[in-house]
């Protein structure tokens, strides 16, 4: 019992400390922003400065999630979801519904234009409305007509696209001679044994890797004995590839972080570069 009480008191006292720290950080942020950004400099607009301060505040709040969930993060998260939703709605209206539905039909310039535009759009508009039947429990099956169209399209197109860009392109890359012929006799004479052997080794590495990874995906062959060894080679290839791809991304992600730090330094705190 005492142990439980102890943890409760310790967690509640920790919460108090965290709250105090949080309030302190927010106050500090406010004071620093006010000191650095006000009074406004020549050519600065009030709303832009407020915008930058809000942006900097949101940056700190999202990083605070790395420590743990907190009230400010919850506010920022919900606000962000809302803003993104509003932005998406306006953009959809401006780029899709207004030019494709509202303008051609409700603001048609002539009757010819109206009928012409309607003939192209009547099907997707009906399907779009059918999609809305999801809001009713009884008629929601009607939305199947709309998404059936998309699934069918995706499946049919998929066969073609996959054959082109995965099967043919990859086979084209895979099927090539282990050693390219060197036509220039002068170059050929200067090649050391290592220079000649190296491309062959590389091509073999790729061929073995591709075949063993493909083997790893076999579903109807038990991975036992020889098969087990071969699929293990495949797994090793996969792991090295995943590692390589992981390592390859690290620098890109670091530069994003640096970008945020630069925003805070140069735009919020106005430290001169």
């Amino acid at each position: 019992m005492t142990a439980v009480d102890n943890t409760q008191t310790s967690s509640s006292s920790r919460r108090t400390i965290e709250l105090v720290v949080l309030v302190g950080l927010v106050t500090a942020f406010g004071i620093i922003s006010a000191l650095v950004r006000f009074p406004l400099e020549e050519g600065e607009k009030l709303r832009d400065v407020i915008g930058i301060i809000i942006g900097a505040g949101l940056t700190f709040i999202f990083y605070s999630f790395l420590y743990r969930d907190n009230p400010l993060f919850k506010i920022a998260e919900n606000l962000y979801v809302g803003v993104a939703l509003g932005y998406g709605a306006i953009i959809t209206w401006r780029q899709s519904l207004r030019p494709e539905v509202y303008d051609p039909l409700f603001r048609a310039v002539t009757s010819e234009a109206f009928w012409h535009e309607l003939s192209y759009r009547v099907v997707p508009i009906v399907l779009g409305i059918l999609l809305m039947t999801r809001l009713s429990k009884k008629h929601s099956w009607l939305s199947r007509y709309s998404y059936g169209l998309m699934v069918g399209w995706g499946a049919g197109m998929g066969i073609f696209v996959v054959t082109d860009s995965y099967i043919l392109k990859q086979l084209e890359g895979a099927i090539r001679p282990l050693q390219k012929i060197v036509t220039d006799p002068d170059v050929a004479a200067n090649l050391s044994f290592f220079d000649q052997a190296w491309p062959v080794v590389g091509s073999l590495v790729i061929l073995i890797g591709t075949v063993s990874v493909l083997f790893y995906f076999f579903f109807s062959v038990p991975h036992k004995r020889l098969g087990s060894g071969f699929s293990r080679v495949g797994i090793s290839y996969l792991m090295i590839a995943f590692g390589a791809s992981f390592g390859y991304t690290v620098m890109g992600r670091m530069s994003l972080l640096i970008g945020r730090v630069q925003f805070l330094m140069f735009e919020w705190l106005k430290i001169k570069q």
Binding site: I167, L171, I181, L207
Partner: peptide, 25 residues
């Protein structure tokens, strides 16, 4: 199971293709 047959075909195609091309070169 059908996918497996397809994969086997591709594996064979790759190996045979590489061997033929290498010999040709």
């Amino acid at each position: 199971r059908g996918q497996d047959i397809g994969k086997a075909f591709m594996m064979i195609a790759m190996v045979v293709g590489v061997i033929l091309l290498t010999i040709a070169v």
